[in-house]
Design a protein around this nucleic acid. Sequence first.
DNA 1: CCAAAAGTGTTAGGAGTACACCCATGG
DNA 2: CCATGGGTGTACTCCTAACACTTTTGG
Lengths: 211, 211
Amino acid sequence: MTQQRIQVAVDIVVFTVQEQALKLLLIQRGIAPFKGRYALPGGFVLAKETLEQAAFRELFEETGTTDVYLEQLYTFGDPDRDPRSRVVTVAYYALVPTDKSPLLAGTDAAAAGWYPVLALPSLAFDHGKIVEYAVDRLRNKLEYTNVGFQLLPSKFTLSALQDLHEAILGKELDKRNFRRKVLGLGLVKPSKEMQATGRKPAQLFSFRHTT
Amino acid sequence: MTQQRIQVAVDIVVFTVQEQALKLLLIQRGIAPFKGRYALPGGFVLAKETLEQAAFRELFEETGTTDVYLEQLYTFGDPDRDPRSRVVTVAYYALVPTDKSPLLAGTDAAAAGWYPVLALPSLAFDHGKIVEYAVDRLRNKLEYTNVGFQLLPSKFTLSALQDLHEAILGKELDKRNFRRKVLGLGLVKPSKEMQATGRKPAQLFSFRHTT
DNA sequence: CCAAAAGTGTTAGGAGTACACCCATGG
DNA sequence: CCATGGGTGTACTCCTAACACTTTTGG
């Protein structure tokens, strides 16, 4: 019994934060099927690359950045998820820091953009399901790890970090409890610098690299 | 740029518990590469089945059981993980209840068997890595869900449940705290029956289905 | 009667949550 | 001087973890 041809792709849910909202990268499709609909960036895996390398490559082609956190999410392989042929896609999610979320002046610039997770257009293929899965994972991960830092510039205020958590979790957090917890975990270290953004200047912190 | 042929397989880490030890199903390979080495059950995905169906099918072919918990684990796709050709494998793990872990009188019976996780032989391909990943996941899952029940017969004593947890986590648990927690979570309901196994008879419980 | 597993409460420490006011600055 | 966001402490609850003895049965 020989195996029918199955193609292997990667799709990436690229998150960033802009204007206190969690957003992700979508590309408007220029060709059928789903012409004109929005889809996740992605593409086929090449012969000599790992799955992760394929994801990084696609990500770089779309955004120009390489400094991102990337993690495998789940593999979607229903026989009819792509109407053209059988495609199994390994989904990844990526976190790109606010100050590096590019404006995409590259190749497909016109067709690509950041869309707030809370107001997404309807997506091509099963990409809606993939996004849902990714948002869930990100929320869970945030509860018990430090992934959040991957979305901020290297120096940030605690208020910015809190805004980020609130944007991702979709709920408000108590300022004092949040600060105590973050500082108590020791994942963050204070810098001498201040940021004069609001009224009263705020202290800047940086992520303490522990590995 | 066309994509080179990539094959898609599923591999399954099938867990069970026998004699208070966590074990998994391995099959001794009859052909090269890795002839004579042990490997996880698995095989190629067919044209018209989902990934999960493929995993269930393979599992049934090896064990004859269908009454199992099955969950996707991770997808492994390094270009050289199979020396013959490029194979991307979607790994699943399965939990089969103690009283249903079959003795494998089927086709490849001679070559298949249950091996304790704590004393595994060296495995073919990257299956060692897959197993490691599966054990980690199972341990994590156990901490905050009820997967444990999937490994026990429908009626069980609390001591059996505790032994199971200890076998998976690899550490001893306090009896009183364990019982309080399990009962407090309300995931388990007492039955009227008693089991006369040890010295003093023990009360039997069953998993409370909540979905 | 003895070995072996079943069963049962209390206490102390840590984590999470709720809650309100003063401070520094720019306009 | 006032509006805006920055910054701080305390009390209560709940979960976790540590810890030892009595009960029931089979042999």
